[in-house]
């Protein structure tokens, strides 16, 4: 007996060590079981309380960002309200066929809907034919969009038909701007990074290239590309696509940005043709100023 006690006194540490290590290993191995027991996890009231107090402190540091997000969302909702209001007012007045929609609160557009009756995507210069013509009010150089985004520009018009030059035509160059990632859905704010023009490369109907974007612009994958509103054809802020990738060419100071087009040109079937109401006025004024 004496020797046993002596033995434990000398080697007790090792037993304790082994015991504790085996105990913690058992805890690890059975951790799934213990995760469910409240005592061993942060669900127990002491640690939960401490975490709660800690969180209430950290919450204050997040307030600024929360405020900013709310402001952005507010602005987006306001913009939407203006849009809906304008649409509602114009729909009340106009006839069934012609509905005047307001995309930009300052510029008014009339929207004609049309069906695509002929379409190509795999040629070097593609064209889309629509079943509406000058009899229906379509004129040359009107802009064509659909619910997904920008389609193209009306090129020639006959009495009953019109031909659209889509983005998938190297002759069509559309002035676009790069917006940062959109925070709230459908918000028209976003940070505008730079303006460039969009040109199709003639290879893939899903992608186009954006040129003339200087290198200092912080382009990121996933940024949205929208129309700039600087060219006469398109209202501002219509979706064109998203940045898929970009490369810096070695010989000049511009990015070569690959844009994934938002419109699926393969399946495009119904489009909206937009007429800018004050176009003539604007053109005349610009001509006068240039004289």
């Amino acid at each position: 007996m004496k020797t046993l006690i002596k033995f434990f006194l000398t080697y007790g540490v090792y037993f304790l060590f082994a015991l504790l290590e085996v105990g913690s290993l058992l805890l690890v191995v059975n951790s799934n079981k213990f995760q469910q027991s409240v005592f061993f996890t942060s669900c127990n009231s002491v640690s939960a309380k401490i975490y709660e107090a800690n969180q209430s402190v950290w919450d204050y540091f997040g307030l600024k960002q929360v405020n900013q997000e709310l402001a952005v969302e507010n602005a987006a909702l306001k913009n939407k309200l203006i849009l809906v209001d304008n649409q509602y007012n114009s729909l009340r007045v106009d006839s069934q066929r012609k509905k005047s929609i307001v995309l930009d609160p300052e510029k008014e557009y009339i929207c004609y809907s049309a069906k695509v009756i002929n379409n190509s995507i795999n040629k070097l210069q593609n064209y889309i034919t629509l079943n509406r013509g000058s009899n229906d009010g379509i004129k040359e150089e009107m802009s064509v969009i659909n619910s997904q985004g920008v389609v193209g520009i009306v090129k020639t018009v006959s009495e009953h038909f019109s031909v659209v030059m889509p983005i998938l035509n190297p002759k069509a160059q559309i002035s676009c701007k790069i917006k940062g990632k959109v925070i709230a859905a459908n918000d028209s704010m976003g940070v505008i990074k730079d303006i460039g023009s969009l040109k199709w490369t003639g290879e893939d109907y899903r992608y186009a290239n954006m040129i003339q974007v200087p290198r200092h612009v912080p382009v990121r994958k996933g940024d949205t590309i929208v129309t700039s509103g600087y060219s006469d054809f398109f209202p501002e802020g219509i979706l064109v696509g998203t940045v898929e990738g970009f490369s810096k060419s070695s010989d000049d100071n511009y990015y070569n940005i690959k844009v994934k087009l938002s419109v699926n040109f393969k399946t495009v079937s119904y489009v909206d043709v937009l007429e800018y109401k004050h176009r003539k006025e604007q053109d005349q004024l610009q001509l006068q100023a240039a004289k």
Partner: peptide
């Protein structure tokens, strides 16, 4: 530490070691 970080036993083992 384990109880707070929901890693039952891991820190206990290493610390005892």
């Amino acid at each position: 530490i384990d109880i707070f970080s929901n890693t039952v036993g891991i820190h206990a083992f290493a610390t005892v070691f």
